[in-house]
Amino acid sequence: MKANFDFEVKYWQQGIKLIAGVDEAGRGPLAGPVVAAAVILKPDFNHPEVFDSKALSKKKREALKDLIEKEALAIGVGIVSEKEIDKINILEAARLAMLKAIKDLKIKPEFILTDFMKLPDLPHEAIVKGDQKSTSIAAASIIAKVTRDEIMKKYDEIYPHYDFKNNQGYGTKKHLEALEKNGVSPIHRTTFNPVSIYIRKQE
Results as ranks from 00 to 15, higher is better:
A94P: 11
V146P: 05
A37W: 00
A139D: 09
I88Q: 01
E110R: 00
I102A: 02
L18E: 12
F51S: 13
L179E: 09
E177I: 13
A25L: 08
P186F: 04
E177P: 15
I197L: 10
V50K: 05
E49M: 09
Q14D: 13
R189N: 05
E177Y: 11
D66W: 14
S185W: 11
G130H: 11
K129S: 10
F45W: 12
K100W: 00
L122W: 02
A94K: 12
E62F: 00
E62W: 00
E125F: 14
E110W: 00
K58E: 13
H175S: 11
P194H: 04
P160V: 05
K174D: 15
A38N: 03
K154T: 14
P194Y: 02
K87S: 05
A94S: 15
A20Y: 06
R61H: 07
D156Y: 04
H161V: 07
D66C: 13
G32H: 11
P194V: 04
A36T: 01
F45H: 08
S57C: 09
G78I: 07
I68Y: 03
N89S: 04
Q13F: 05
I107A: 05
N182M: 14
A38L: 14
F192D: 01
A178V: 10
I199G: 09
K165W: 10
G76Q: 02
T147K: 01
H124T: 07
F192W: 03
G183L: 04
T190C: 08
A31I: 03
I16V: 15
K106A: 07
A55P: 01
I197D: 14
I79K: 00
P43D: 04
K154N: 11
P109R: 01
K106T: 13
K17L: 11
H175N: 12
A55W: 06
S196I: 08
I79W: 00
K165A: 15
G169L: 01
D115E: 09
Y170T: 07
E24L: 01
G130P: 07
G15M: 02
E203N: 05
R61D: 07
E82D: 06
L99D: 01
L105W: 00
Y11M: 08
A38M: 13
E125G: 12
D66K: 15
F111K: 00
P186C: 06
N166D: 08
K103Y: 07
K60W: 02
N167H: 15
I127L: 08
P120H: 03
L91N: 06
N167F: 03
V80D: 00
T190S: 09
I102C: 03
G130E: 10
K153A: 13
Q14W: 02
K10R: 14
I137D: 04
L56V: 02
E82Y: 10
V9Y: 03
A20H: 07
D86Q: 01
V80S: 01
G130M: 04
D23F: 04
G169Q: 03
D86T: 02
Y198W: 11
K154I: 10
L30Q: 04
I142M: 11
N46L: 12
S81V: 09
Y159W: 15
L18S: 12
A20I: 13
G183K: 02
R61V: 03
V77P: 00
I85R: 01
K10G: 12
R189A: 04
F192M: 03
M152F: 03
I19Q: 04
E180Q: 13
L105A: 03
G76C: 08
K133L: 12
S81G: 07
